[in-house]
Simulated scan of single mutants.
Amino acid sequence: MRELTRVGIDIETFHSEDGAGQLEVTFRPSFGLKAADNAHTFRTSVKEICQSQGYTASFMSKPFEGVVGSSCHFCHSLWDLEGRQTQLYDEESKWQLSEVGQYWIAGLLEHAPSIALLCAPTINCLKRFQPETFAPVNATWGVDNRTAAIRLKVDGSGGTYIENRMGASASNPYLLLAATVAAGIDGIERKLKLPEPMANSAYNPKLVPNNVKKLPTTLPEAIQNFVADDLMFETFGADFIKTFVALKQHEMKRELEAKGKGKSKDWEMDFFFKIL
């Protein structure tokens, strides 16, 4: 944590989490692409520093069954061009969330099933989306609700932010940023209506409205949602989508081969643990 400040990563909090060897680290936000740069530098630095000491730091999302997975909560806020005036907080508005902020979250919910592929980009990542694990299972939002996909944290004009809880620790921060921005802007341009927030557990199907979309839990389902979303096709382009989907198909092939050899429980650890 001390060394990271030398490469521009200002650590705010650092503590242990529920899983064995699982740690949570948060660092100060930055504007624009610098946020993704920081996430990439952080992850790479941690892996290299640990390797130099004889340890393996892994950002594999779900290395152990029955244990909570590791996430990459994408916390973000909206500001004016000068970065001085928040565009999220509005004391007079419902939920103290500005009209622009409401459109933005509505866009995230509208495209949640399709951007899930970039938030949780591997077979292993998608296994996080399980009830009662503090990972989301549906396209819901709530004020300080950690069971929903999108959590709004209201803390005045300087500290109000949106937490996209769909991100897995193995996600690519640049793709996660791009997908989030594309979905949010679409909500603003179309002035999508924000549904009522989840006041209670979003894991309880009796409390979740029938029209709420579920998040994909398998790679084929996630791919299908992604390629069927016109906004994602327009945002990322045909070349990226063709290449990315081919990579995911290779991943599914590896899984089938492992199952055929009776190693369905081992292949993910062998394939993902060290490289992620």
Rank of each mutant, 00 (worst) to 15 (best):
G66E: 05
E3L: 06
T86N: 11
E163N: 08
P209W: 11
H73L: 04
N38P: 00
S171Y: 01
D239A: 07
N204P: 02
S52E: 12
A20T: 12
G21D: 06
I105N: 06
L81H: 09
R84V: 13
N200C: 09
F129S: 07
L118R: 10
E251N: 06
P197T: 12
P173Y: 09
Y203A: 07
F272K: 06
S52N: 08
D90I: 11
E99K: 15
A135S: 15
L231Q: 04
Q130S: 03
E92H: 13
G158H: 15
T133D: 11
R151W: 13
T160F: 10
Q224W: 00
Y103S: 15
S264E: 12
D230P: 04
G262E: 08
R190S: 15
G21M: 06
G159S: 12
N204M: 06
A148F: 11
D230K: 13
F226A: 02
Q22I: 03
S77E: 09
P195A: 13
A106T: 13
V208G: 09
A246N: 07
R146H: 15
A246I: 00
V245M: 03
M252C: 07
P63Y: 03
Q249P: 00
G54T: 07
F129E: 08
A116I: 06
S157A: 14
A112W: 11
G83K: 14
H111R: 11
E268C: 04
A139E: 11
F42M: 04
P136C: 13
V100G: 11
P63K: 08
Y89D: 07
Y203H: 12
F226I: 04
N225W: 02
I241K: 03
A182G: 14
A222V: 01
C50M: 07
M1P: 02
T235P: 11
T180S: 15
Q130F: 02
F240C: 05
H40M: 08
E234V: 03
